[in-house]
Each structure stands twice: as C-alpha cells, then as structure tokens.
Design a protein around this nucleic acid. Structure first.
Lengths: 213, 213
DNA sequence: TTTACTTTCAAACAGGCGTTTGATACGCTC
DNA sequence: GAGCGTATCAAACGCCTGTTTGAAAGTAAA
C-alpha cells in the first residue's frame, strides 16, 4: 500500500469534499434549489464529478444524508437515566441545537427538516430511517409521562405538538427573520426556546392526563 | 354596454380561470414546483396567456394571493365578543380549517403556508400584509389571557407555539401521510386537532403565568 | 518504459423552464 | 362591410438544469 490507512487517496478526498459541499448547499437551498454545478464549484471539482462518484444528484443526496447524529442523540437520551420529564427536556434541547445551531456539525438534520415539506426521491428513506424511529421514541417518552390515561390518537398529537413547535423555528426562519431582523439564535436563545417548548408541553400533558383520569 | 355588470367578457373569464388554476397549482406544488404550462393547461388557455395578463409568473402569484379570508377571520373573531380563551379556541379552529380543509375555498392560506419556508419574490408582501398582522393579532390575544405577567419574548414564543403546532399539520403532510396513510383530515379530525392545540396551549400559558405571578 | 486502470477535464447534449414573437381570429365601433 | 384594438395561438428563443462524452492527465504495477 502506498498510503497508510488514515491517509486518504486523492479520489477519496474529492468524494469527501463533494459530500461536504453537498450538505452545505442542500441545507441552504433545499434539494430542488441546489444545483450540481454549485456543489462542484464549492468542492473545487469538475462538473462531472457528482455523476462519476454518485451516479446522480439523487444518489449524492442519499449518501449525504447521515442519520447517525440523530440515533446518537436518542441513545444518549436513554443512557442519561433521568426521569421521563427530564429526558423530554433533554431531547427538545438537543433537537433544537441540531436544528438551529449553525456551528453544529450535524447539519444533516437541517437537510432533512427541509425535505419534510416537499417530497424528494429520498423522503421515503428519511421517513423510514429517521422520522419514524424518532416519532416512536418520542411516543414512548410521552407514554411514560402521561401513562395510559390518554388515547393513541392523543399521544400522536402530543408528539406532533413537540415536533411542530421545534420545526417551526427552522421552517419559518425566512419569515421570522423578516419579523425580527435583529434576533440571533445563539446558544442562550436556543436554550430559552427549548425550555419554553418543554415547559409548555409538560403543562399541556399534565392538563390532558388530569382530564382523563 | 354589451353586457350586464355581472356578466364577464371572454377576456375576464380567461383571467379568472388563470387565477383559479394558479391557486390550485401553487398550493399543490409551491411556487417553484408549479409550471406556467401546467397552469395554462388547467385553465385551458394558451401558454402565453400568463404573460399576456399578468406580465410574469411572479405577477400571477401576486394577484393570486388574497388576504381577505384571513382578515375576515380576524374580524369575525373580534366580533364574536367572547372571552379571550374562547376566542383563542375559535381562532385555532378557523385557522386549521383554512389550512387543512380541501373543500375550503380559501386555499390562499395554503399557498402562503407553502411559501413561508422558502423565500419567493412575494414573501415580503405576504409577511407585511398577512403574517405580521396575524402575529400581532395573536399576540394581543395571548396578552389578554396571560396579562402582563409574561415578558415580551415569552409572548412571542407563545405565538410561535400556536403557529408551529398549526402549520406542522400542513408542512409535514407528505411525512404524516407516509406515517399514517389511512388518516384523513375530515371535519371531525380537524376539530379534534384544533381542540388539542387549544387545550394544550391554554394549559401551557396558565402554567407560565402562574410561575411568574 | 510499457501497460492498464482510475480520475479529471472541457465541452456538448437533451430536456424543461419562463418568456417573446408575429401571425391569426375575434369583437366592437363607425 | 371596413377598420381597429383586443385576445388567442403555435412556434421559437434564451437560459439553466442534470447528465453524458471522449479525450487528457494521473497513478501504480510489470
């Protein structure tokens, strides 16, 4: 072997640069809005590189997606071994960081959030491997908090309430920026948002469970 | 005059057909996803008709937008002369109907909801004439319920919580349909959703105001 | 150096897009 | 019916898109 294991060949470097550029551009402009030429330009690669390495723009998106950070988050949440309420707070906090923190390397989540709204060839994979498990995860957490005093449909709506509030801050960013141009999503602001959502939700579910008791 | 006031000329009919088709296609595919050719096909008009009547695709969107139903909703809400909590329920209910009910003629709201996520030449107008007033409207309502026990930032987040939960059902429709293919948004389901959001929210704001009292 | 293979490149391709054009048909006034 | 402004039409334009092509450059083993 010419190179040690950890040293990448020139080819592997190009591949990696393409994936990184793709994640940037996809999360900024969405799948449709992103162009192969822009991705190649940022990766300093030739315009044909995407098709050479990934077969197509669709293939590039499929490989650019990475569900590991989401799964790691869920794993860490279970491991935390806190009470269900505390774990819910933790989940919302970590999720908001993934969605809003620009310094966060897992922009994967931002790509996915973008694709939720309008279907992409990769949406089926996203739903199967990321959304569905996450809904089930949150569903269990809600059950642990509310017990069996709420119906299945109500539990689903509880999960939707959480995701809805969280995703709003990402989906509506263009609007929110027009309404409050000076507002920045630094860590302090993100934590305040996460706390608001968690507090709100816990109060709501308490109320709901009380009614049905 | 050849025609009575309420009888439209052939030209006006074409214009109207174009606007109706545009609202359909825009709300289904978004502004970017919609094509002028498809709109003309549905309106049974020539491909050049859009530019003839509206100058451009942008111009067509601008004229297709109609904020009247939203304003009428707010007006009716004030007129209802109910207690703030009841008015909030009413608002959420009406808003969800606009967002989800396919039979509802005001698909305008669905177009706007689509555009919130990724900027369009018309987004500035939408924010100025529809989103901003609605946020202010809801902000006042939240204040009436919570009093001055919550900060300005908290009030904003309360408004976001409502919009987030409502818009989720529209923005995430492609995903939700994959998770629960059999679920249909009939009037009964929409009312259940609206009630859930309202109950949840009122419990949350009660909790928040209590903390700060 | 020769050989075979991989990677890069500029250029072109095919298709869809919004838009423009110039001719044709229509509706109205005189 | 002549004349004129409006409305419709098929066709084409120019641009951008993802993708393909075939040659050139690079790489590594024999």
């Amino acid at each position: 072997m010419m190179s040690e294991i950890q040293i990448k060949t020139a080819s592997e470097q190009t591949r990696t640069r393409l994936l990184e550029a793709a994640r940037e551009v996809f999360s900024q402009h969405g799948f449709q809005g992103a162009t192969v030429r822009e991705i190649c330009r940022r990766a300093e690669a030739n315009g044909a590189a995407v098709n050479y390495y990934f077969g197509s723009k669709d293939g590039l998106l499929a490989e650019a997606l990475n569900f590991a950070p989401l799964k790691a988050m869920q794993k860490a949440n279970v491991k935390a071994d806190e009470c269900p309420r505390m774990r819910l707070r933790l989940f919302i906090h970590d999720f908001m960081l993934m969605l809003l923190d620009e310094k966060n390397p897992s922009s994967q989540c931002q790509i996915m959030a973008r694709e939720l709204a309008d279907p992409t060839p990769a949406l089926d994979k996203i739903v199967r491997e990321a959304v569905q498990p996450m809904h089930e995860f949150l569903g269990k957490l809600v059950r642990e908090i509310a017990g069996d005093r709420i119906s299945e449909a109500e539990m689903r709506r509880c999960v939707y309430s959480i995701f809805g509030q969280c995703l709003f801050y990402r989906h509506s960013q263009p609007v929110l920026h027009r309404l409050h141009p000076k507002l920045r999503y630094d860590h302090k602001e993100i934590e305040a948002i996460a706390e608001h959502i968690a507090e709100f939700f816990l109060a709501g579910i308490k109320h709901l469970a009380k009614d049905r008791a």
